Simulated assay, not measured.
Amino acid sequence: MYIIGGFECNTNLELALYELEELGFREEDIFIVEMKHPRNSERLINSIHSSDGKSLMDSITAWGVVVGTLGIIYGSQLLIGPIATGLLGLVVGAMIGFLTDLKVNKNKKKKRSNIDVLLIIHCKTEEREEKIKKILQKFLVVTIGVHK
């Protein structure tokens, strides 16, 4: 059976490895896999097939409609007329929506997995499995899995 533990890359991983070796595990029974976090390019506009949860078009449209409508309503009082002020309000509202969305999305941090290293340990008995789990939990493992 294999016991898999996900660790952050820190001294707890080294201490867990040391204690596992003290318990009698050989280097052939312990596998370490470094996890790579790919960088995805962020797009400003989502498509039908993929979305990253950050839609700029919603805010741009909402702000454009609101400020454009206000421009039409109050533009009848101005010299240039309601159509021109409505179009001007649409452009200004779209810029407000775009800048608001950029500010909001910039402040949101993308969640990243805390697992930097996978530790895979091969063991043969149930009692050793329990010992391994206790050692991993002692050294703050993020996740534990067992494959039998």
Rank of each mutant, 00 (worst) to 15 (best):
D29R: 14
I4N: 00
K109C: 08
E129L: 13
L17T: 15
L119V: 10
F25N: 09
Y2W: 07
V104L: 09
K110I: 08
E8Y: 03
M95A: 09
K138P: 00
E127D: 12
T11G: 11
E19H: 13
V33L: 12
T61R: 05
H122E: 15
V33E: 15
L20W: 06
L79I: 08
L17G: 15
L79N: 09
I132H: 00
K134A: 12
H147R: 14
I60K: 03
C123G: 09
K111S: 15
E22P: 05
G5K: 11
A16C: 13
M95N: 03
R26M: 07
T125Y: 06
F7M: 02
E19T: 10
E34I: 15
E8K: 10
P82G: 00
I3L: 10
R112M: 11
E126R: 09
I135T: 13
I83P: 04
L13K: 10
I120P: 00
V142E: 13
D29V: 03
E129V: 13
L140F: 11
N10I: 06
G75C: 07
L90N: 12
Y74P: 14
P38L: 06
I135G: 05
D29W: 12
D116I: 02
L140G: 04
R26G: 13
E129M: 12
L90E: 06
G24Y: 01
I121M: 14
E28P: 12
V67N: 02
V141D: 09
I4R: 06
K133R: 08
V92R: 01
E42H: 02
P38I: 06
F7E: 04
